[in-house]
Design a binder for these strands. Structure first.
Length: 137
DNA sequence: GCCAACGTTGGC
DNA sequence: GCCAACGTTGGC
């Protein structure tokens, strides 16, 4: 099983939205590296839900991959080029683990999310990073 | 609203 | 295939 982090702007789709609908297609990814990560996901993989472009960017909960990659219908004629997965709500943290807080921990110095200039909306998380961040929640 | 970073596009 | 221009992301 692998671990991931997936970003969403809460104004568009938040952890509370996911909790309400339980399962949702994660679509609209239009970056090849992020798409390749989507295609590597397997049912049962876990992912952090990250709120971006908002007052308090940070990790707000956990979801499970419920369906492996399939063509992204929101890409229209290019659906075959892009991919979606289905995600299922698992847990909302009692508090957000903010980006500011994540930056304070030396254990996360190599975390992709914190790398300068990183803009990927989907990225892998190591087992060590996953365990450490869970311990902060 | 600004700006750094970086991916994509398109002319050559 | 190079590279300048442009667009997007996302934190601040």
């Amino acid at each position: 099983m692998n671990y991931w982090l997936m970003k969403s702007e809460p104004y568009e789709f938040s952890i509370d939205d996911l909790k309400r609908v339980t399962t949702e297609p994660w679509s609209g990814v239009r970056n090849y590296l992020a798409r390749n990560y989507l295609r590597q996901m397997a049912v049962g993989d876990k992912a952090f839900f990250y709120h971006s472009s908002c007052e308090e960017p940070g990790i707000v909960g956990i979801m499970t991959i419920a369906k492996a990659a399939y063509p992204d219908a929101t890409a229209g004629l290019e659906a075959e080029r892009w991919s979606s997965v289905d995600v299922r709500f698992e847990q909302k943290f009692s508090r957000a683990i903010t980006l500011t807080e994540l930056k304070k921990h030396a254990e996360l110095a190599n975390f992709t999310l914190l790398q300068r200039g990183n803009r990927l909306s989907i990225m892998p998380v190591s087992t060590e990073q996953w365990t450490f961040i869970n311990g902060l929640a």
